[in-house]
Measured scan of single mutants.
Amino acid sequence: MTEYKLVVVGAGGVGKSALTIQLIQNHFVDEYDPTIEDSYRKQVVIDGETCLLDILDTAGQEEYSAMRDQYMRTGEGFLCVFAINNTKSFEDIHHYREQIKRVKDSEDVPMVLVGNKCDLPSRTVDTKQAQDLARSYGIPFIETSAKTRQGVDDAFYTLVREIRKHKEKMSKDGKKKKKKSKTKCVIM
């Protein structure tokens, strides 16, 4: 069974824990209790493949930012979460993405942009803004509501699919490099 290491990042209060708990335990946590770091595991079937999701729910508070490099190193894919009623959390996505790329030393890291709290009427981040940002990053965008469960499975499952595509691409690139290195030079 394939294991996928997913990391949920975003500013404090955007609903990272609520999304994760909704996926794992099928219930909505409405009281806000700032996370330092929590880890969850769940076995699911995605596109006919049974897999184990190892999900790291991270601290959004700035005082825990020193811990970010460590979990970013171990993560295979990242859910970059903002709240649709919090423009600052949307603007912060850029910083999370840049930090992930720096730590992973790669421009090509599996990510999904997630606009959470889409059940709320007080939207300050337009869907088109988020779609445009995701398009500019070359990553999928999904709106979710941890409260109603809308888009929750889709967000995590899409990230797994992005990781699969990335692994497939990397193995193809690896095979191309191996083929090239088999060419021999004969000096007579």
Rank of each mutant, 00 (worst) to 15 (best):
A66E: 10
E3S: 02
K184Y: 02
F82N: 03
K179E: 14
F78I: 07
G138I: 02
Q129P: 13
E107P: 09
Y157A: 10
R135L: 09
D69C: 03
K101W: 13
V103F: 15
R161A: 02
A18D: 02
K180V: 14
A83I: 03
D173I: 07
G77I: 12
Q131E: 10
D126A: 05
S39A: 04
Y64Q: 14
G138S: 06
A134L: 11
T183F: 11
T58M: 06
L133E: 05
T127W: 05
E91L: 13
L52G: 13
A66D: 14
V7T: 12
T127M: 05
Q150W: 04
V152M: 10
K169Y: 15
D154V: 05
A130P: 10
Q61G: 12
E37W: 01
E162N: 13
A155C: 14
D38Q: 00
E143C: 04
R123L: 08
D105Y: 06
M72G: 05
E98Y: 03
L133S: 04
I142S: 14
T50M: 11
V186C: 13
V9W: 11
R161C: 12
K179R: 04
A83F: 02
M67K: 03
G174I: 08
D105N: 04
T74S: 11
R161S: 13
S122G: 10
L52I: 14
Q61V: 09
S17G: 00
G77Y: 04
D33V: 02
A18S: 07
D108L: 05
F156M: 05
K180Q: 05
L6T: 07
V14K: 14
D173L: 13
D108Y: 07
D119C: 07
D33R: 00
K172H: 08
S39N: 02
A11S: 09
M72Y: 09
D69W: 05
C51Y: 11
R68A: 13
L56Y: 04
L120C: 12
L52Y: 12
N26E: 11
L133F: 05
G15A: 00
F78S: 01
S89V: 10
Y71G: 15
D38I: 00
G10W: 01
V160P: 01
Q150L: 09
K167T: 09
T144L: 03
K176Y: 13
V29Y: 14
M188E: 15
V45K: 10
M72E: 07
K169F: 14
D119G: 12
D54H: 01
Q61E: 12
